[in-house]
Computed example of a mutant assay.
Amino acid sequence: MQKSSLAELTVRHLEKARGSSSGRSAETVVGGHTHILRQTLVALRAGEALDEHENPGEATVHVLTGRVRLAAGDTSCEGGTGDLLTVPDARHSLTAIEDTAVLLTVAKLE
């Protein structure tokens, strides 16, 4: 059994993202590449993005703080603190509208 404080991780990784040349910071909190389930806290400085990429399985983005835009093709939606966005089964990107931390949950398809 493991316990993590998403509030503490959010503060820590937002600080790292703000000070990083890439404008981002991340930490996998559950699972990993060898597991079906993976949950990763991702912090992005305003204006930074996770560029377009494939969806490796079923995925959601839970906005812990801030605002993001999830885009796939010609469609997009915005989410703010507390929102849960379902990642489409298509190439997509995630852009921080303001300093943001999200919990990305992925269940890999085998």
Rank of each mutant, 00 (worst) to 15 (best):
residue 104 L to V: 09
residue 23 G to K: 06
residue 107 A to F: 05
residue 53 H to C: 03
residue 47 G to L: 12
residue 28 T to E: 04
residue 95 T to C: 09
residue 80 G to S: 06
residue 22 S to V: 11
residue 79 G to N: 03
residue 36 I to W: 11
residue 104 L to E: 07
residue 46 A to T: 08
residue 86 T to Y: 06
residue 60 T to D: 06
residue 52 E to T: 12
residue 69 R to A: 12
residue 59 A to K: 01
residue 16 K to R: 11
residue 62 H to R: 13
residue 77 C to W: 09
residue 18 R to F: 11
residue 81 T to D: 05
residue 21 S to M: 15
residue 65 T to P: 01
residue 84 L to V: 07
residue 47 G to S: 15
residue 87 V to K: 04
residue 73 G to A: 08
residue 43 A to M: 06
residue 8 E to Q: 14
residue 71 A to K: 07
residue 10 T to N: 04
residue 66 G to R: 14
residue 75 T to I: 02
residue 33 H to T: 14
residue 68 V to M: 10
residue 40 T to N: 06
residue 42 V to R: 12
residue 42 V to Q: 07
residue 110 E to T: 13
residue 22 S to N: 15
residue 107 A to W: 03
residue 75 T to N: 10
residue 8 E to D: 14
residue 93 S to H: 01
residue 10 T to R: 14
residue 39 Q to F: 00
residue 35 H to T: 11
residue 72 A to Q: 07
residue 1 M to L: 10
residue 61 V to T: 05
residue 83 D to S: 13
residue 6 L to C: 01
residue 91 R to I: 00
residue 22 S to H: 08
residue 47 G to K: 04
residue 17 A to V: 07
residue 46 A to G: 04
residue 32 G to F: 01
residue 75 T to F: 13
residue 49 A to K: 06
residue 48 E to A: 06
residue 21 S to D: 11
residue 3 K to H: 08
residue 99 D to R: 00
residue 26 A to S: 15
residue 45 R to S: 13
residue 78 E to R: 13
residue 101 A to I: 10
residue 19 G to D: 15
residue 33 H to A: 07
residue 49 A to I: 13
residue 23 G to S: 08
residue 38 R to D: 02
residue 107 A to M: 08
residue 93 S to D: 10
residue 96 A to V: 04
residue 51 D to V: 03
residue 100 T to Q: 02
residue 19 G to Q: 14
residue 32 G to A: 05
